[in-house]
Nucleic acid binder design. Structure first.
Length: 462
RNA sequence: GGCACCAUAGCCAAGUGGUAAGGCAAAGGUCUGCAAAACCUCUAUGCCCCGGUCCAAAUCCGGGUGGUGCCUCCA
């Protein structure tokens, strides 16, 4: 089965052919100035699915995701403030404290979403010399120039600029904002290195005095350092196509003289109630906030798995609720399979396995793969089906191996328990009137009670 | 204004030339004192509209309409 992946560069699905036996994947990671929201996290779930599928297909994978902890300016390429510095100022902490805090939370979040940690997650601040080296190289080759506030990339010197996003440079220039006071040669030239104001906290020595790196150079430097100058796949969100990745191509290809990335892959945005979800609009949620509303990170992962990564996904709480219910029922079905000792014919199992493999290899069609799982689960119960589901879960990452974990161990008040116990007794005596009264009482106290074969279940009303 | 993507049942969403996956909701049923849960069954003669190509179109082509995103920081 060959793996097909959609390459943004060619705008077609291509058969994936690795450069050598080690598949190398670079993913643009978070800028750690603010907590990641669920829209951000969708992109990392996409990255995770890609890597899991590559591994499922038998490839050895080395993947790198950067942690941007410096140099991401508010206004790209222009005179914006560094996001880290601003966040630090607002919270009266140092940029390093912010970075540590947000980075720790980020890893907690992706762990909770079953996103496998990348092989390496380098920090920008730990790779400054490598960045300086590339900037020097670009200066030497005539692709960069120095002005009062830093070193800039001269976009007009690079022929291929715009090939990823397919924008016409002239059109862009016509409509672009013109930096009146800027010494930049072209309005879209971007900063490789910024000279630091004395009060700028994060700064390093460089051939051009104290300063800090531009955002785009970080990814070029770290991908080259950890994956080499020619690697297989580069992932990120669609918003990175026009500027960030265009700039990376410009930097990398100008430095090396050859193509650095074979496949560019981008995940679409998550919408909120049909509109944009972004930090600047303030309509985003974190996994922590979802948890407070009673949705686990895996519920959210399941929600994301329902749509293909190249389609916009509209987030609503109704949608998430439906995903949660579906996921719980899936687990219930699998429990029944696991507890059954029947067998399933090999050819039936093989059929589902093949359908599943076909789906994931067709540009990560996980919604279809989930559909295959559901159809399989509706087959007569058997342990074999559960075993195959577990194998599929290597890709899906839905904790299908944890069928019996107690959900959230909420401590339920003793008073509530004693009412429930009392109700159990009166039910045995068939005193339905009292039973209904106690059920209503529990409801008033915030709990729904459900009768089961040999007892009851209490559920806190959200 | 330029560029890109999208339009499939009440909702989410697969399907890109061969006669509409899957999930949620709704409906019917089993179970139950009732309820809830669970389980079973079922749900689009049609895929935004109008033309065209083809034996065959949700799928390809042309023209509309509507939506979203980017061109300013964003995953």
């Amino acid at each position: 089965m060959e793996l097909k992946l959609y390459n943004t560069l060619t705008r077609t699905k291509e058969t994936f052919t690795p450069i050598n036996e080690l598949v190398r994947v670079y993913s643009c990671g978070p800028t750690v100035y603010k907590y990641a929201h669920i829209g951000n996290l969708r992109t990392y779930i996409f990255m995770d699915l890609l890597v899991r599928i590559l591994r499922y297909d038998g490839f050895n994978v080395k993947n790198v995701m950067n942690i941007t902890d410096v140099g991401h300016l508010l206004s790209d390429g222009d005179e914006g403030e560094d996001k880290m510095e601003r966040s630090a100022r607002e919270q009266q902490k140092t940029p390093y404290e912010i970075a540590d805090e947000i980075t720790a939370q980020f890893f907690k979040d992706i762990d909770s979403l079953n996103i496998k940690r990348p092989t390496i997650t380098p920090k920008a601040t730990e790779n400054i010399p490598e960045m300086i080296e590339i900037v020097q190289e670009l200066l030497k080759k005539g692709y960069a120039y120095e002005i009062d506030d830093g070193i800039y990339y001269d976009v007009s010197k690079f022929n291929g600029y715009g090939k990823l996003s397919r924008i016409n440079l002239d059109d862009q220039k016509a409509g672009a904002r013109v930096g009146v006071n800027s010494q930049k040669h072209n309005p879209i030239d971007f900063a490789l290195w910024k000279k630091a104001e004395p009060n700028h906290i994060m700064q390093w020595d460089s051939p051009w005095g104290k300063g800090y790196p531009g955002w785009h150079i970080e990814c070029t430097a770290m991908s080259f350092k950890y994956l080499g100058k020619h690697f297989d796949i580069h992932t990120g969100g669609v918003d990175h196509i026009p500027i960030h990745h265009e700039n990376e191509i410009a930097q990398g290809e100008a430095t090396t003289g050859f193509k650095n990335t074979n496949y560019w892959m981008h995940s679409e945005f998550m919408l909120f109630d049909g509109g944009k979800m972004s930090k600047s609009l303030g309509n985003c949620y974190t996994v922590t906030e979802l948890a407070e509303k009673g949705y686990s990170p895996i519920d959210f992962r399941y929600f994301c798995l329902n749509a293909q990564y190249r389609q916009k996904l509209n987030f609503t709480f109704d949608g998430l609720a439906s995903a949660k219910i579906a996921y719980e029922r899936l687990l219930a079905q699998l429990r029944a399979h696991n507890e059954c000792n029947e067998k399933t014919d090999l050819d039936i199992l093989e059929k589902y396995k093949q359908e599943f493999i076909e789906a994931i290899n067709d540009d990560i069609n996980v919604p279809m793969a989930l559909g295959v799982l559901w159809k399989m689960v509706k087959e007569p119960k058997s342990k074999d089906i559960y075993s195959l589901a577990l194998e599929m879960d290597k890709v899906l990452g839905l904790n299908l191996d944890k069928l019996y974990e107690i959900k959230d161990e909420q401590t339920i008040d003793e008073n509530i328990i004693s009412i429930a116990q009392k109700r159990l007794e009166v039910r045995k005596a068939k005193d339905w009137k009292e039973s209904d009264r106690l059920r209503e009482q529990l409801k008033q106290l915030g709990y729904n009670i459900k009768d089961t074969n040999n007892g009851y279940e209490l559920e806190k009303i959200q």
